[in-house]
Every structure is written in C-alpha cells, then in structure tokens.
C-alpha cells in the first residue's frame, strides 16, 4: 500500500494580530491508500489547520507534509493548485456554485483539469447517477435538498479521480436521516471502490464510523486508534 499523506513534525503558527498562535505543534501522521480515517477534536484543537494543510490550501510553517508523495511546503501556488486537483474536497456547507446546475458543477471540476467537453459530460452524468441523483442533474443547488447538494459535492469531489476524499464535517449541515445516507454513501465508496477517506469532525459518534480515529487536542495528536 502506498502512503497518501505523511506528516513529520508538522507545525503551523498563525499570527493573530500580533500574537503568534501555535495551531499545530509537531504532528506526525501517516495515512495509507484505501484507509478511512477521521481527525477528531474540539474547536481550537488544530484539526481545521490539518484539513487546510492536507488539502494544500495552506502551507506549513515547518516540518514536512507529503501529499501524494510531494512535500507541499516546497511548492509554489501553481503547483499547490495542481495538488488540489487530485484532492476531492467535500465541505460542510457544500460549496457548490449556485448559478450552475448539478451536472455543470461536477463538470466544472473536470474543465479545470482540462478534460474535453464530451468526456466530462459523460463522466458527470455517470457520477451523479452513482450518487443517486440521476433525475436531478439539471437542477440548480437551490432546488436541491441539503442531502442532495452534498451528494453533488461528493460527485464533484470524485470527478478528477482524486487520490483521496477530504471531508470537512460532511454531515454537519443535514438532518440525521440524511446524515446516515451520506455516511453510507461514503462507506460504500471506501469499501467497494477503494476510495481513501480523510474526514475532519468534532462529532465523536461520526468519527467512530471511520476505521481509524486520530484525536487532536491543542495542536497535537493525543491518540491514534483503530476503531
């Protein structure tokens, strides 16, 4: 099995006004392909910072963070964008483009990756079909329920065949029944399609659904347990 994410003594310090805030204080973590891990912690624990760094949205202050084998601390903006192309983000607030239909949202991700129009249309339809939105492809996000929007977001995250899915409180904004459906879709992707999953959450119960839970407190990993 190959390693998709590897952190070695990872540190991140923010300046909050003039006060330095140590969000990460030497994190060591290794995630293998095919794994399903959750990063659990209360607010201020550094889990959001972990998410930003693993998602190549931000760069570490020191230490090494390899995402898909490359140290993102050494990359410029352009190369970071290329790394993000191979990461499937799923956000708490869906973050779909409101003016685009479900299908166009999924296609957008592929057009950013320079895929041609015919191929992306076909793949977008296939992905939306797979997440159970065959009949809702041409609806705009505002015309979809929260659960449906999150399915579109998952389809979009899968569009460019990512190395892993990076989920940020994926059920934080839907009701519990929908949350169960979303989680079972994620389990299915992991189990049946071998998609690696990294999920960041503050929800103990949700975190326990993963195969492995990394518990963060005060910018450090407190425990790293297989469920």
């Amino acid at each position: 099995m190959s390693t998709i994410v590897e952190a070695i003594d990872l540190r991140k310090t923010y300046m909050l006004g003039k006060v330095p805030v140590e969000a990460l204080r030497g994190v060591n973590l290794k995630v293998e392909a095919g794994d399903f891990i959750s990063i659990l912690g209360p607010s201020g624990s550094g889990k959001s910072t972990m998410l930003n760094l693993i998602g190549a949205l931000d760069k570490p202050t020191s230490g090494v963070l390899r995402v898909g084998g490359v140290d993102i601390g050494r990359l410029n903006d352009n190369h970071l964008a290329e790394v993000r192309l191979k990461i499937g983000f799923v956000f708490q607030f869906f973050n779909l483009i409101p003016r685009l239909s479900a299908k166009a949202n999924v296609e957008l991700a592929m057009s950013i990756a320079d895929m041609n129009s015919a191929a992306r249309s076909k793949r977008a339809a296939g992905l939306l079909n797979a997440v159970g939105l065959k009949d809702r492809m041409y609806h705009k996000p505002a015309e979809l329920s929260g659960g449906q929007q999150q399915r579109v977001a998952i389809a979009r995250a899968l569009a460019n065949k990512p190395k892993f899915l990076l989920l940020d409180e994926p059920t934080g904004n839907v009701d519990s029944k929908t949350a169960t459906e979303i989680m079972s879709l994620i389990h299915k992707l992991n189990r049946e399609h071998g998609v690696s999953i990294i999920m960041v959450t503050h929800d103990q119960k949700l975190a326990s659904e993963a195969r492995r839970t990394v518990h963060m407190v005060d910018g450090e990993i407190e425990s790293d347990l297989v469920n």
């Binding site: 352009n78 290329e82 993000r84 192309l85 990461i87 991700a109 950013i112």
Partner: peptide, 8 residues
C-alpha cells in the same frame, strides 16, 4: 471554491 477545485 474554484481554487480548492484546483484552479490556478
């Protein structure tokens, strides 16, 4: 969002 999707 566009940048998170990998847009340069």
């Amino acid at each position: 969002i566009l940048k998170a999707l990998g847009m340069k």
